[in-house]
Amino acid sequence: MSRKEEILGRIRAVIRERYDKPSLDDLQATVFPDPLAAFIAASQTAGSKVVELATGADINETVRGLFPEAGVIASNLPEISIATLNPDTVGSAQELNGTDVGIIRGSFGVAENGCIWIPQAMKEKAVCFISENLVILLSKTEIVNNMHEAYRRVDLGDYGYGTFISGPSKTADIAQTLVMGAQAARSVTVVLV
C-alpha cells in the first residue's frame, strides 16, 4: 500500500461524523456605493500611490514623469515603449535584478483591501517582485467589491501562477516598526487607465 493510501485509509477509519458544506449564499458581504473610491483609499492605506492617467496622456510619459531617474525599466506590455528589459526575453530571472521600474498589468482591483489580481503574463514573474518600484496598470472600470467577488473572477492563465498585490513589500518584524520595502518592490504605483 502506498503512503498516500495508508494516510487516507487512516483518516477514513477515524472520521466519525461528516459535516455538511455550508452555503455561502446568505453571506452579506460588504459592498461599496463607490467601489473605485474605496479601492483608491484602501490602496493608499496599503502604501500604494494611485494616479489616474489623464485623458489623452501617454502612459510612457506618465511613468517617465513619475520616475525621472529610472535607468532600467522592465516590461513586456505592448504599449510600453520605454522598457529597457523584457521579462519575456531575458535569459534568466536573475537578469531582472537591478530593475528600477517594472511595469505590469492588473486584471482587476478589490475595493475592500486594495488588492490587484496579477495573473502571470510574462515568462519571468520575477519582474513583479524584484523591481525596486512596481507600476501596475489597471482599468478603473475593473473594480470588484470584495474577495468573494474577486475569487469568482480569478484565473491563473496558462502560466499557472497569479498573485493579489496590495501595496509594496512591507515588514514590521523589527520591534513592530512598519517598514516599506522588505524583500520585494519598495514602492507600488497604481496607474488607473
Binding site: A42, A46, N113, L156, Y161, T163, F164, S166, K170
Partner: peptide, 11 residues
C-alpha cells in the same frame, strides 16, 4: 485588511 501578497502557485 490583507497581506501585501496572496500568491497562487499551480505549476
Amino acid at each position: 485588511p490583507t497581506t501585501s501578497y496572496t500568491s497562487h502557485f499551480r505549476k
